[in-house]
């Protein structure tokens, strides 16, 4: 399978796999490196995606830049006259 088909298949798996269902994750392969970007709601979800990508692309060096979102109290309100 060419790299482009493999990337497309992996992108769909991250969205469609029952245990993942993330539509906003960017997966970019550069040489022997695969970089993940995006935001998720828990560390568990971040790790699940990493595991799935590692299974799909064995041998690639993985750089996981996915951020776990915070849910802290908001900053100042936006005034809308």
């Amino acid at each position: 399978m060419t790299e482009e088909y493999a990337d497309a298949q992996l992108q769909r798996a991250i969205a469609e796999d029952a245990g993942i269902a993330e539509l906003g994750i960017d997966i970019v392969t550069r040489g022997d490196c695969v970089v993940l970007n995006g935001h998720v709601e828990s560390a568990q979800r971040r790790e699940t995606i990493e595991r799935r990508v590692t299974e799909h692309l064995p041998g690639y060096r993985l750089v996981n830049e996915i951020v776990v979102l915070k849910a802290e109290a908001p900053g100042p309100a936006e005034e809308l006259p």
């Binding site: 935001h39 809308l80 006259p81």
Partner: peptide, 20 residues
């Protein structure tokens, strides 16, 4: 206003509508 959590990156945003 797009209030998707990954965009606002806080528990919620607050808007004061009709603020003078």
């Amino acid at each position: 206003r797009n209030v998707a959590h990954p965009v606002i990156r806080q528990a919620f945003s607050v808007f004061h509508l009709g603020a003078v």
